[in-house]
Simulated scan of single mutants.
Amino acid sequence: MGRPSRQIVNLAAPAQPAPAADDALRAAAVVLGPMLRMLLASGVDYTRLAAQLKPLILEQARIELLRTGQADTDSALSALSGVHRKDVRAWRQGGLGDRVAHEASISSQVFARWVQDPLYRDRRRRPKPLARHGEEPSFETLARSVTRDVHPYTVLAELVRLGLVQVQMVKGVETVLPNREGFVPPPGSREMLDLFGANLSDHACAAVGNLLGQDPMLEQSVFADGITDESAQALSELTRKLWAQVRSEMIAEALRRHETDQGRDGATHRMRFGAYYWSQEPDLPVPRRHSAKS
């Protein structure tokens, strides 16, 4: 007698149809373009990228199977991802590669409190220069208000390394001067890469969730073409002013709710709210070079 067929249980058609495969691939290619530019500039070639993609697609395939109530067997993972079963087994033996959510760095938390706490701001609601030592408001008390596990000197050294603060003598007092532009790590730094990955990943999660019919998330933009470089620069300056206003209000509310939610059941959620601005000249056609035939 043959093996009885498996029963299909807990499977239901999605509430919203997914995009057609070819359409989804074309959209992904547009998104991947800037990512590939960054990878190539960093010395990552196709071979290294392909090796990294295999565990990533397996991880996402496993998440999708579990989300839809299916068992994440080797066969199911192979069928959904297109990865050979022997590679699936090797991936399991090497660990499931679950993503670990990284908390915001201590330096970014300290700078966020500096920006928002009225005790550490000037009359124009900007982070004010602080004496390095002494009673509050000082940098020492600012750092200790965020964490007592990391020494204020260590936090200060990291902020100096990132170019976010300067330490100068002001009227005979060692003073920490903040960067007025906010928490913006230098280009190419590990901190900039961490922000890059976290920001774009969460933005993509919101967009993909909306595309697949999940609970709607805010993911909108304003765009225009046919404008001059002067207009593009003026709009860029406007976005920075608007972001400064919105950021201040959002940080205040987020800090208030974070402090209120400490110790409460269900305080496991995280959020991210951001903004971006991009402008460019029209893409110029690149002449195709024909290689000489041997």
Results as ranks from 00 to 15, higher is better:
Arg3Asp: 04
Pro4Ser: 06
Asn10Ile: 00
Pro17Arg: 12
Ala20His: 10
Asp23His: 11
Val30Ala: 12
Leu40Glu: 06
Ser42Gly: 06
Tyr46Val: 14
Arg48Ala: 14
Ala50Ile: 02
Leu53Pro: 02
Leu58Glu: 09
Leu77Lys: 01
Leu77Asn: 06
Val83Cys: 03
Lys86Phe: 04
Trp91Leu: 09
Leu96Tyr: 08
Ala101His: 13
Ala104Arg: 13
Ser105Ala: 15
Ser107Lys: 07
Val110Thr: 04
Gln116Phe: 00
Leu119His: 06
Tyr120Ile: 08
Asp122Ala: 02
Pro129Thr: 07
Glu135Gly: 12
Ser138Asp: 04
Thr141Val: 02
Val146Met: 08
Arg148Gln: 12
Val150Pro: 01
Pro152Thr: 15
Val167Pro: 01
Gly172Phe: 00
Leu177Phe: 00
Leu177Trp: 04
Val184Ala: 14
Pro185Lys: 06
Pro186Cys: 04
Gly188Cys: 07
Ser189Lys: 08
Glu191Met: 08
Leu195Gln: 09
Leu195Ile: 00
Gly209Arg: 06
Leu211Tyr: 00
Asp215Cys: 00
Pro216Gln: 08
Leu218Asn: 09
Ser221Glu: 11
Val222Pro: 02
Phe223Cys: 10
Glu237Trp: 07
Glu237Gly: 13
Arg240Ser: 08
Gln245Gly: 11
Glu259Thr: 09
Arg264His: 13
Arg270Gln: 13
Arg270Ser: 12
Tyr276Pro: 06
Tyr276Phe: 12
Trp278Asn: 06
Arg288Met: 07
Arg289Gly: 00
His290Met: 14
Ser291Ile: 01
Ala292Cys: 09
